[in-house]
C-alpha cells in the first residue's frame, strides 16, 4: 500500500512537472538575453523620431524604480494586444551601467520581457532630458508616445487603461 502511494506520488510529480514545462513552451517563446545594447543619446535619438506608419511607445525606466516596475506589465500587454496594429514598444533603461549584468539582464530574463530593452548611458543629462522633451524634469518613470502625425510626453506612471486610451488617440489620427 505504502509503495503504491509512493509510486502514485512520483507519477503526480512527474506529470505536473511535465505539464508546467509544456505550458512554458506554449505560452511564450522567450529567449533569454545575454547583452543589452548600450546607447548614448545620439545613438538613441533615431529611435525617438522614426518617420513611418508605426506608432512607438518609448518607456524610460530602471529596475531600481519601483513605480516603473509596477507599470512594466502594462507596456508588455500593450505590445501583445496591439502586435498586429503597427504599434511598437521600446523600453529605455536608465539603470547604472555597472549594474547591467548584475541587475538589468537578470531582471529581463526573470520577467521574460518581450519588448526590446536598450540602455541609455549618457552623462550629459542636462542636455538630453530636455532634448527628448522640453517638459521633462527628469523624473522616472516617463513615457513618449509618437507617430509621424503626433507626439506626446508623459512624466507620470500609467495604469493599463490610461495607457491604452492614450494609444487609441494616436491610432485614431
Amino acid at each position: 500500500m505504502k509503495k503504491s502511494i509512493l509510486v502514485l506520488s512520483f507519477f503526480l510529480v512527474f506529470f505536473s512537472c511535465k505539464k508546467n514545462a509544456e505550458k512554458i513552451v506554449v505560452v511564450d517563446d522567450f529567449k533569454p538575453v545575454k547583452v543589452v545594447k548600450n546607447y548614448n543619446y545620439e545613438q538613441l535619438k533615431p529611435l525617438l523620431e522614426k518617420d513611418d506608419d508605426t506608432t512607438y511607445i518609448v518607456n524610460f525606466w530602471a529596475t531600481w524604480c519601483a513605480p516603473c516596475v509596477v507599470e512594466l506589465p502594462y507596456f508588455e500587454k500593450i505590445k501583445k494586444e496591439y502586435a498586429t496594429k503597427n504599434v511598437e514598444v521600446l523600453l529605455v533603461s536608465l539603470d547604472f551601467p555597472k549594474q547591467v549584468d548584475k541587475k538589468l539582464i537578470p531582471f529581463i530574463n526573470k520577467k521574460k520581457l518581450q519588448a526590446e530593452v536598450v540602455l541609455l548611458d549618457d552623462a550629459n543629462e542636462d542636455f538630453w532630458i530636455q532634448a527628448i522633451d522640453e517638459s521633462w524634469t527628469g523624473a522616472l518613470p516617463a513615457t513618449l508616445i509618437y507617430n509621424k502625425k503626433n507626439r506626446k510626453f508623459y512624466e507620470q506612471s500609467f495604469e493599463y487603461e490610461t495607457l491604452e486610451n492614450e494609444l487609441k488617440n494616436f491610432l485614431k489620427l
Binding site: 524604480c65 519601483a66 536608465l94 542636462d126 532630458i129 521633462w136 524634469t137 527628469g138 523624473a139 512624466e155
Partner: peptide, 10 residues
C-alpha cells in the same frame, strides 16, 4: 536651471 534623472516623488 539644469536637469538630471531622478526618482519620482512617491
Amino acid at each position: 536651471t539644469t536637469r538630471a534623472i531622478g526618482c519620482s516623488i512617491k
